[in-house]
Amino acid sequence: MVKKSAAEITILWIFFVLFVIYAITLLFPVAWCLNNSFKYQKEFMLNTWSFPKEFTIANWISSFEREIEGTNLAGMFVNSIILIVGCSFCSIGSSAVTAYCLAKYNFRGKGAFYSLAVVLMMIPSTGSTAAIYKMFFQIGLYDTFFGIFIMNLGGFGSGFLLLYGFFKNLPWSYAEAGFIDGASHFRVFFTVMLPMAVPGIAAVAILTCIGIWNDYYTVYMYAPSIITVAYGMQRLVAQTSYNANYPELFALMLLSMIPVIVVFCVFQKTIMNNTAVGGLKG
C-alpha cells in the first residue's frame, strides 16, 4: 500500500471540514423539527427556535391517531409497503427478464431494443399524464393498486440498464452446464441464472423501493384514495397550512422517516456492491 502523501492528507482534512458543515445543514432541520414537535401549537406560533417552555409529548401521541380519509399513519405504512412490494415485483420482474434476454441472447433487432430502452427513458412522460389518466379511467383501473402495479411493468427503464450490466457480467458457463443437463431455457433462467443474480436484483430492488416510497405524484394523479406515506405527508402539509398544527406535523414527519433511514443504513453496503451500471452502447 502506498502511503498517502501530505498533500492528499491536507485535501482530505479540508473536505472533511466541509463535509461536516454540510452534514450539519442536513441534520439541523431534523433537529429543529424534533425540538418543535415537543411544543404546544400556541407556543410554536410565538417562538420557533428555542427549547420548549412547556414540554409535551401530546403531539406524538395524537400523531398516531391522525387520519387522512380514514387512514392513520400505520395504515399509510401498510399502503406504502403494499405499493412498493407490488410495484417493485412488477418492475424488477419485467426489467430482469428484458435485461437477461438482451444480455445473453442474440436475436434480430436486439440492438434496436437496447437503443429503444435508452431513448424511452429520456422521453418525458409528464406530457402523457393526460392520456394515461384518460385510459385508466376508461378501463376502470383508476384509483386501484392494480393500476399502479401495471404502470410499473415497463421493462425498459432505469432498472433495466442497471441489471443489464449485471447480467452481462455473469458467466454463461453455468447456463451452458444447465443446457447440457437437458434443462429448458426457462429452467435455466429461473433455477440457475436468476438465483445468481439475486444480489444485483436486491440492490436494484432497494433503489426502486426508495423511489416508489417517496413518490407522491403518481398516487396523487392516478390513485388518490390510496393514502401512502408520501401522499399522506403531502396532504398533511397542505392541511397544516389551514389548521396551523405544525408541531404535530413535525412529529408525523419524523415518524415517517425513521423506518426508511433504518432500512437504508442496513442495506447501504448491498446497494453499493451490487450496482454495476452497464454501458450505453447497444
Partner: peptide
C-alpha cells in the same frame, strides 16, 4: 423487530 414494534405501536392505539 424494528418494523414490527413500529407497526404495533401504530396499530394498537388506532
Amino acid at each position: 423487530c424494528v418494523a414490527a414494534a413500529w407497526l404495533f405501536c401504530g396499530i394498537f392505539p388506532s
